[in-house]
């Protein structure tokens, strides 16, 4: 018997002896796969449950709301005729739209400029702090960054006093200034991290050519900045859209953003009128949800940079 065949035999034997163990391993793997998918789907359902509640409840006319069937589908769908000419589920939506439409318009006028302005300023800061550095640039950065983490309550009392003494209006324009200012730290952070990834050589080449800082920024750096802008604009748009704190302290329901109007609609709603509150919550969330669905990748990019180190 040659050595080779003996070796082969041994291997075959050992392969045989492994067989039962391996199949046990495979069933264990299959089992853990099943457990994993079951758990994941279970969590998926839990996370989506509030969305189901929002949609279903928004379609139920007030007279059909009943605690016992509150988790069920609507007894009468909105397109089915209501009893005795009563309201249908669509009326919830009409009510919500009437209560919110003006404020939704105002919130666009607030969130879009706020996002654009602080993004542009953030890009300049990020460029300087990452790539055209000066002494103490790191200290300046940390000092700016701290502004991102403060509880805004800590500046709210003097800010409200300042607004009163300057006679600033309780509307979108005041909120615009505030969102631009308090958006600067995060935009600076995002762009600083983003520009840190741009090769040194590009910048050096431009310096060699005798281009100044602004030329370098304008002709070399800005054209490369689109991904950074997408991230900051999404971030700023979302936080201005979803803000409630500044809106509550600095504006009023008639001239303020959608968060105030929605809160007013929801707090005014009795149990029987939950439908319109839910319809309103869906309407008010639609713009940020669309942004999330369409540009989800960049949305996550913004989230990640919130953790300081990218």
């Amino acid at each position: 018997m040659s050595l080779a065949t003996e070796l082969e035999k041994k291997q075959a034997a050992s392969r045989k002896s492994e067989m039962p163990g391996q199949s046990a391993l495979r069933t264990r793997k299959g089992l853990s796969r099943t457990v994993k998918y079951t758990l994941l789907v279970f969590f998926l359902i839990i996370v989506l449950m509030p969305v189901y509640v929002l949609i279903v409840t928004s379609l139920k006319p007030p007279q059909d709301v009943n605690p016992a069937t509150s988790w069920g589908l609507p007894v009468r769908w909105p397109w089915e005729p209501a009893l005795e000419g009563g309201p249908t589920g669509f009326d919830n939506w009409a009510l919500a739209w009437n209560a919110l439409s003006a404020s939704i318009g105002r919130t666009f006028l607030l969130a879009i400029p706020a996002a654009l302005i602080s993004s542009f300023l953030g890009a300049m800061n990020g460029f300087v702090l990452a790539r055209w550095r000066f002494r103490y640039a790191d200290i300046v950065f940390t000092v700016i960054l701290f502004g991102m983490f403060i509880p805004y309550q800590a500046i709210m009392t003097p800010l409200v006093q300042m607004k009163t003494s300057l006679g600033l209006p309780s509307d979108i324009s005041t909120l615009l200034i505030v969102h631009v200012i308090y958006g600067l730290p995060i935009c600076t952070l995002i762009f600083r991290n983003y520009y840190a990834g741009i090769p040194h050589e590009l910048m050096e080449a431009s310096r060699m050519d005798g281009a100044g800082m602004l030329r370098t920024f304008g002709s070399i750096v800005l054209p490369l900045s689109l991904p950074g802008f997408v991230v900051t604009i999404i971030w700023q748009f979302t936080s201005a859209w979803n803000d409630f704190l500044f809106a509550l302290f600095l504006s009023n329901q008639n001239d303020g953003p959608v968060s105030l109007a929605l809160n007013n609609l929801a707090q005014g709603a009795q149990l029987a009128n939950y439908g319109s509150a839910m319809a309103g919550a869906l309407l008010a969330s639609l713009p940020t949800l669309i942004v999330y669905i369409v540009l989800g990748k960049y949305f996550i990019g913004g989230l990640m940079s919130g953790s300081v180190k990218s």
Partner: peptide
């Protein structure tokens, strides 16, 4: 995407359903 989407919604809106 599903686990992350609630992050895009305001506390005020989610407060309605919660």
């Amino acid at each position: 995407s599903v686990f992350l989407f609630p992050m895009a919604i305001s506390f005020v809106a989610s407060g309605v359903v919660w």
